[in-house]
Simulated scan of single mutants.
Amino acid sequence: MAEKVEKIVYFCTHGGEDCERASICFAMAGAALALDIDTTVALQGKAVYLALEGYTAHVPEVGGFAPISKLVGDFMEFGGKLLVCKPCIEERKIEDERLIEGAEITAGGTLNLLALESDAHLVY
């Protein structure tokens, strides 16, 4: 019998306007990856800007965390899954091709199923 894979999803709703919450979200997600947990970050609302190519380079460091650009980059490099809310990017007139490599566009139905399938979910 196969061992159960633990899954966690972080719903991030803040970008550069609240860089502490955004940083905490990606720091926690990175820690989950280090524990071999199947980890997803779902960006909603203003957080979708974090998936915009070049955006994180201008977000200030806070709370003793690494720069958000490093936190997001490491998250992607180490196998994290980044989902971006389609209605949220449409509202902000962000074209799909402007998102960072590896970001996947999704909507409410998928996010609800993901939350139900995960062992835990946190909102930042």
Rank of each mutant, 00 (worst) to 15 (best):
M1K: 11
A2Q: 11
E3S: 14
K4H: 13
V9G: 05
Y10W: 09
F11I: 15
G15K: 09
G15P: 10
G15R: 11
G16I: 11
G16K: 10
C19K: 11
R21E: 04
A22S: 08
I24K: 10
I24C: 07
I24W: 08
A27I: 05
A29Y: 10
A29P: 05
G30F: 08
A31N: 14
A34V: 09
T39I: 09
T39V: 08
A42V: 12
G45K: 07
G45N: 13
G45W: 12
Y49L: 14
Y49W: 09
L50C: 04
A51E: 00
A51W: 03
A51P: 03
L52C: 02
L52G: 04
L52A: 04
E53K: 15
E53S: 13
G54A: 10
G54D: 15
E61G: 07
E61Y: 06
E61V: 12
E61C: 08
V62N: 00
G63D: 03
G63I: 00
F65C: 02
F65T: 01
A66F: 04
P67S: 06
I68Y: 00
I68P: 01
S69F: 07
K70W: 06
G73Q: 02
F78S: 10
G79V: 02
G80K: 00
K81E: 12
L82N: 00
L83E: 04
V84A: 00
C85W: 06
K86Q: 14
E90Q: 15
E91Y: 13
E95G: 10
R98K: 15
E101W: 09
E101V: 12
E104L: 14
I105N: 03
T106S: 08
A107I: 05
G109M: 09
T110L: 12
L111V: 06
L114V: 00
D119M: 01
H121A: 13
Y124K: 01
